[in-house]
């Protein structure tokens, strides 16, 4: 049961990794398209990993784990988005 879940998770992550590398190495796409595929498959793979290997789910047992993960995700978003916004804005004004 658990082993099956692990196997499925492993195969899925192989597949997603394959897609990511393929999108970049095949050189045949629009840049925007490739970027979207890259981010989508990375995000999906992270979710698979969290769920399959780190047992994050919506059961009451792990509700605080989930809460802390979501809070961290929010903070990460603020930090990355804010930093890129500020620093790219500064960079443009310097040029």
């Amino acid at each position: 049961m658990k082993a099956g879940k692990y196997a499925a998770g492993f195969l899925l992550s192989l597949l997603l990794t394959g897609i990511s590398f393929w999108v970049v190495t095949s050189h045949s796409h629009f840049r925007e398209f490739a970027v979207i595929i890259l981010f989508a498959s990375a995000l999906l793979q992270i979710v698979v990993h969290l769920h399959v290997f780190l047992h994050v789910d919506s059961s009451p047992d792990s509700s605080w784990n989930l809460f802390s993960l979501l809070f961290t995700a929010l903070i990460i978003f603020l930090m990355i988005a804010g930093t890129i916004w500020i620093m790219y804005n500064l960079g443009e004004r310097l040029n």
Binding site: W85, I86, N89, L94
Partner: peptide, 8 residues
């Protein structure tokens, strides 16, 4: 005062 734009 570090130089970011008005929007930021």
């Amino acid at each position: 005062t570090m130089g970011a734009g008005a929007d930021v």
